[in-house]
């Protein structure tokens, strides 16, 4: 479903020197699978997620990224979203004055429009929203408030998953969704995520810690270091990292 081949990328931001951020990532995530990306700070995990989502400034210099057989890198961010790419942000942004439901409905209808589908009716939208908020144990009033404004870190993460469940994407990229969540919230959010696991969806779970992977069981685990994947394995690799740390692995790969 997602195929990355020898992907190199640079970060080019105005006023900052260019720097290489990915140095040849090759990765295949078949439909129906959950892959975890682990690695120390600065190894390129978030970079990879931004590159796949199309954040301005993150530029592939060589290699390819194909999603459902299509060249992902040539698409605008909103076109990728309409194809089913969803990034759950590590730091969700605040949007003052725009209530959550207004935002999500605009997103949903924009995606539908670009796929040539009709808009969702207000009652259908509300029904769906209510059911998902309930599943995530969210206060319905939260959905009437401006997006993320004054929300706690945990509330913001929960709201990302709310949006993901509303939009039902095909490729889900979770960027450190566990940070800011307490143990109960982690369980509730993970249940929500797991509900979306299906044979025609795939997931990339970016995390530092094993604990998220106790709830969202990965099929494969990859270790990213200095912009390259230095090790891949089954779920046991995450457990090994938890006990031995990254250093030993990185030294071995060096």
């Amino acid at each position: 479903m997602l195929e990355l081949k020898d992907l190199h990328a640079r970060l080019t931001l105005e006023g900052a020197p260019d720097r290489a951020i990915l140095n040849g990532v090759t990765l295949t995530v078949p439909a129906g699978e959950v892959h975890a990306i682990m690695g120390p700070n600065g190894s390129g995990k978030s970079t990879l997620s931004y590159l796949l989502a199309g954040r301005p400034g993150y530029q592939a210099t060589s290699g390819s990224a194909r999603f459902l057989g299509e060249d992902l890198l040539s698409l605008e961010p909103e076109a990728r979203a309409a194809k089913g790419v969803f990034l759950s942000f590590q730091y969700p942004v605040e949007i003052p004055g725009v209530p959550v439901m207004t935002f999500v409905r605009a997103a949903m209808n924009a995606q539908r429009a670009s796929r040539g589908e009709a808009e969702i009716s207000a009652p259908d939208f509300l029904k769906k929203s209510r059911a998902i908020a309930e599943r995530l144990r969210m206060d319905p009033d939260m959905l009437k408030r401006p997006l993320n404004v004054g929300f706690s870190g945990g509330e913001k993460k929960r709201l990302e998953i709310y949006q993901m469940l509303m939009l039902e994407p095909r490729l889900m990229i979770l960027d450190e969704t566990d940070s800011g969540l307490d143990i109960d919230a982690l369980r509730i959010v993970s249940e929500g995520v797991n509900a979306l696991r299906s044979p025609d969806r795939a997931m990339l779970v970016i995390t530092h810690y094993q604990r998220l992977l106790d709830h969202i069981r990965p099929d494969r685990v990859h270790v990213l270091s200095a912009g390259r994947i230095i090790a891949s394995g089954g779920p046991e690799l995450a457990l090994q990292l938890e006990s031995e740390g990254y250093d030993a692995l990185i030294a071995g790969a060096g």
Partner: peptide, 22 residues
């Protein structure tokens, strides 16, 4: 970028943000 990642086109995203602002 956040709005675009959710599928909202750039012009509509600006309109959405501005409407929030006012």
């Amino acid at each position: 970028f956040y709005a675009r990642q959710r599928g909202v086109g750039e012009e509509q995203a600006v309109a959405l943000l501005v409407n929030g602002f006012v």
